[in-house]
Amino acid sequence: MTESDDNPQRFWSRSNPLRALDADERDATLLHLRERAEGQRVAHQLATELQAREKRSHYGDPEAARRHLDLVRALRQAGRITFAEYVLQIGSRMELVSDHRSHEGAYSADLAPISEAMDQIARSYGLAENEYWKRGDEPDEYRALADAYDACLDAKLVETMREFGEADLASLRETDPAQYDALREEGRRSVFEKDNHLVALTTLIDSYEREAEAAGGAGAYLAGCLLWGAAVEGLLLLWCLRAPEVAQAARQTLPARERPKRPDPADWTLDSLVHVSRAAGWLGVLEDDDFVFLVDALLQNLRQSRNLIHPGRSLRQQPHLKRDKAAFDDAKAAYTALRINEAALGLG
C-alpha cells in the first residue's frame, strides 16, 4: 500500500480563506446598527409622549401631524415598518391635512373658479343643485374641469408633503403616481388586511417569480433555484387554502410518516404540501407528441436543488458543486409545469 493510498487527504486541495472585510464594510455595518438603535430610542420616546397627551388633536392640526410624521420616520429608521407602510402612514396623514385645508377654504382661490364653471355646465344641461352625473356619463367639458379640479388637489397634496419635509415622497407622488399608489396599497393591505391570506399569497408568488427571473438574469443561479422552489411551495399552499376541505381530506389519507401533524396548511413544509397535493389528485402529467412528464417527478428534482440551501445537506449530498444555468432552467421548468398543470385541472 502506498503512502497516498494510506492517507488520501495528503493530496486534498486546501481551502482558501474567506474574503476579508475591509474598513469601509465594518464602518458601514456599525453605522447601520447605530441608525437602527437611534431609531428605536426615538420611536419609543415619541410614542410615550403621544400616549401621555391628555387631549387628542384634530387631524388637521399641523403640529399633531408633525409629531405623527416624526414617529413614523423613527419607526422607519428603526426598521419597524417597511417602506410601503411608511408611504401609507405619511401619505394618509398628509391627505388628512390637505383635505382639512380644502374644507376650510384654504384652496378656494384655485378651486372656486373651476367649481363655478362646473356648476354652470351642470345648470346648462338642466341638472338641479344637488344632482350630478354618474362617472363616465358627464359631458366632455365637464369631465375636463373635473380632471382639472382633481389635478389641483393633487398639486396641493404634493405641496403639503414638501412643506412637512417629505420632498422625496412628494417627488414620487408627482413623477410616478402609479408607483406611489402601488406602495400605498401594499402598505394598506399590510395594516388593514392581515388576514387576507389569498391575496397576500398570490402577491408573494408573483414576487418570487419576478425575483427568480432577476436572479437568473444576474447569474445568481442558486438564488434563482431557491426562489422557484419558494414559488412552488407558495402555489401548492394556495391550492390548499382555496380548497381546504379537499386538502384536509387528502391529509387524512396519508400514512403517518407523510401526514402533516398540524392542521393549518400554512404550517406545512414543502414535502408535506407535495404529499397532500399528490393525495388530492392535483399533480398530473404534461404530454407532448413524444413524451409524458410527471409533474410530481419534476417537483422532486426541484426539492433536491432547493434543499441545498442548507450547508450541512450540501456537504453531505453535493459538496463543491454550484448551481448553474442548467439547474436554474430545470427549477424554472418545474414551476412552470406546475402552473400548466394548474390551468389544466382548473385549480387557478
Rank of each mutant, 00 (worst) to 15 (best):
Leu127Ser: 04
Glu85Tyr: 06
Gly136Met: 05
Leu88Asp: 01
Tyr208His: 11
His32Arg: 10
Pro260Phe: 01
His32Gln: 08
Arg313Ala: 11
Ala28Leu: 07
Leu302Asn: 05
Glu166Gln: 15
Asp137Ser: 11
Val42Cys: 13
Pro260Val: 06
Lys332Ser: 14
Pro17Ile: 01
Val246Arg: 06
Ser92Gly: 01
Asp206Val: 10
Gly39Thr: 13
Asp206Gln: 11
Asp140Lys: 13
Leu88Gln: 09
Ala47Asn: 14
Ala344Ile: 13
Tyr221Asp: 12
Glu233Ile: 07
Ala109Lys: 09
Arg143Lys: 15
Ala279Arg: 08
Leu153Val: 04
Tyr335Asp: 04
Glu54Ala: 07
Ser115Val: 02
Glu287Trp: 06
Gly79Phe: 00
Ala249Tyr: 02
Val42Ser: 08
Cys225Asp: 00
Asp168Gln: 06
Tyr59Trp: 02
Arg257Trp: 14
Gln317Leu: 03
Gln317Ile: 11
Tyr107Arg: 04
Arg257Ser: 11
Ala200Ser: 00
His44Gln: 15
Glu104Pro: 01
Phe83Asp: 04
Tyr221Cys: 08
Ala250Gly: 15
Tyr180Leu: 05
Glu209Val: 00
Glu174Tyr: 10
Val97His: 03
Ala128Gly: 10
Met1Glu: 03
Ser108Thr: 08
Thr253Asn: 06
Ala215Val: 07
Pro244Ala: 00
Asp99Glu: 09
Ser272His: 15
Ser115Cys: 02
Glu116Pro: 13
Lys134Leu: 11
Gly217Val: 02
His68Gln: 07
Ala344Glu: 11
Cys240Gly: 01
Arg306Glu: 02
Gln89Trp: 10
Leu153Phe: 13
Ser171Ile: 08
Arg210Val: 04
Ala333His: 14
Arg36Ser: 08
Trp228Glu: 09
Ser272Leu: 03
Asp147Gln: 15
Glu63Arg: 13
Ala47Thr: 04
Glu211Ile: 09
Arg14Thr: 06
Asp176Lys: 06
Ala122Pro: 11
Tyr149Pro: 10
Pro8Ile: 04
Glu213Thr: 14
Pro17Trp: 07
Phe291Ser: 07
Ile205Pro: 12
Pro263Met: 09
Asp6Met: 14
Ala200Gln: 03
Ser15Gln: 15
Leu308Ser: 09
Leu75Phe: 05
Ala117His: 10
Asp206Gly: 13
Ala109Tyr: 12
Ser108Trp: 07
Glu258Ala: 10
Glu85Cys: 04
Leu254Tyr: 07
Trp133Gln: 09
Gln318Met: 02
Gly217Gln: 03
Tyr125Gly: 00
Arg262Ser: 12
Arg76Glu: 09
Ala231Gly: 14
Gln89Arg: 14
Leu321Asp: 13
Thr203Ile: 14
Ala84Phe: 00
Glu186Leu: 08
Val87Tyr: 05
Ala200Pro: 10
Asn16Cys: 04
Pro255Thr: 04
Glu159Ala: 01
Pro139Asn: 10
Asp5Pro: 12
Ala231Leu: 02
Arg34Phe: 11
Arg188Pro: 00
Ala23Asn: 13
Ala155Met: 12
Arg313Phe: 06
Ala327Ser: 08
Tyr107Trp: 07
Glu193Ser: 06
Glu166Arg: 13
Leu69Cys: 00
Arg306Ala: 03
Thr82Phe: 05
Leu88Phe: 03
Gly60Pro: 04
Pro62Phe: 05
Thr2Val: 04
Leu69Thr: 07
Leu273Thr: 05
Glu63Met: 15
Asp24Gly: 03
Ala231Met: 07
